[in-house]
Amino acid sequence: MSDIKSRPIWGRIRPVAHAARHFVCCEGSSAARHVAETFSPNAEALKQVTILYGNTDRNEEAGHTLDALGAEASLHYPTRQTLLISFKAHLKRLHMGAQIYLCGPEAFLNEATAIAESHGVLKEAVQTELCGANARRVQCVHCKGLIENVAYTPIACEHCGVNLMVRDHYSRRLGAFMGVCVDAEAPGDLPARESF
């Protein structure tokens, strides 16, 4: 278990039998395969499932596995940004009683859960599962720029250039870990790189 108090703990996605509708948003081929495996035994529910898939690692085959499920809709997007634009649009018209399933790499979950929260979706209505890289989404506390898919610390902020240490502090509202200047007290002196 994570000992970062502010950090969300990702779970496992399980189709909820009594949910009126199911809404899946997943990114990457390993997430796509996992969603297909999880939902395929639930043929009855699949008529009420909408799947959004971010084909970020250009894996057509994984996309076909999702399509083959026979969900009500199976929609593909080329990037995380386009996937999440569609996610927001669907959230705005989502019915009460719908279950949301988010599956993908850490940075995707960081952003998607923050979007769900900002759209007033209740925590109980969202299931999450980490599937793919555990690279994090980070906000530079100095310039407020967001950095996607950060695999290690320290890193240089891609917006303002400050060398950042990724702190063990997470904001669900922003969907990001905090990046803070690592060499303020010894300019240029960087600790050894550590992967997450």
């Binding site: 108090k5 506390v141 407020k144 063990d168 502090h169 904001s171 905090m178």
Partner: peptide, 17 residues
């Protein structure tokens, strides 16, 4: 500590560090 970062957190979360 940053208000902008901690806004919306609960007591245990903002004391995390």
């Amino acid at each position: 500590w940053s208000l902008d970062f901690d806004l919306g957190m609960n007591f245990i979360e903002w004391h995390g560090p």
